[in-house]
Amino acid sequence: MSDIVLEVKDLSKAFEMPRSLFDALRGQPTRKLVGVDQVSFKIERHETLGLVGESGCGKTTLGRCILRLQQPTGGSILFEGQDITRASERDLQPVRRRMQVVFQDPYSSLNPRMTVRQMIVEALRFHKICSRAEEDAYLERLLKTVGLNIDAADKFPRAFSGGQRQRIGLARALAVQPAFLVADEPVSALDVSIQAQVLNLLTDLRDEFGLTMLFIAHELSIVRHVSTRVAVMYLGQIVETGTTDEVFENAQHPYTEGLLRALPRPEPKRRDRKIALEGDIPSPMNVPKGCRFHTRCPIAQEICRTKTPPLRQLSPTHHVLCHLRPTPDWNPAILA
């Protein structure tokens, strides 16, 4: 039987834009910004779901809703079978120990006034992970796990480089022995030569601790490397999801295709291709009707402008939100 760690059903998060008193008196409705719109997916134990998309697609908001750092406006979140959508902060406490997060910005994600030891020991004591006598040994082991020396324990974050800070952030998350980790662009702010170190560490630790992971990123190549399954987001919706191979080898949604083609590859070949996707990402305050992607879609038809696309299934794991894909002559047998 499959062991589902996280199940998200029709999760939505809309942000209300502040309206002026004048508009309120005129009875104008508040304008809403779409963050996440009716997103559903499941993550099984030991899986890594890669969530990709461009800025404003709602991937970070989705991650924060799952962690209950933001309150969703609709839908539900089931974590290890427990509905946490509206759980109180007190009821969440045991859950929070089970799900942790690593952030993008190595500079703002560590408290500048706390030493590494203070950060980690606080978490250990708060969640009663080990006795006080064991703290030092635990800390040393933990720092070693993320590739840091025990000398690091009594330093403040400013003494470390970006890559080392991400290691500290990872240590803080792993200190409470979570089962599920949200990694929100954990290497995007790092230099190329450091990215690979941190990514290897992340995948090693995932395997070592049997972590289930939601890996949020905008770099497709990193997502391909880390994930077992991939979900592509565009303007608050998941437009395509499948196993990593399905999405990268057999991309169906025109947006996924565009993303894949737009990425410059480190091959010494002067670009001779056409622009992958024309146009701008529409504002999340003003989402297009019909298929949200139709304004940029190279194959859009009339139906795309008017009707919301259906979620089509290509395989038990591969789903596409598109009117036109897969094409009518697509034969599921070719996968078998």
Partner: peptide, 11 residues
């Protein structure tokens, strides 16, 4: 910039 916009600007 985002990947698809980077693509446009490089072109």
């Amino acid at each position: 910039l985002d990947v698809t916009i980077q693509d446009q600007i490089l072109a």
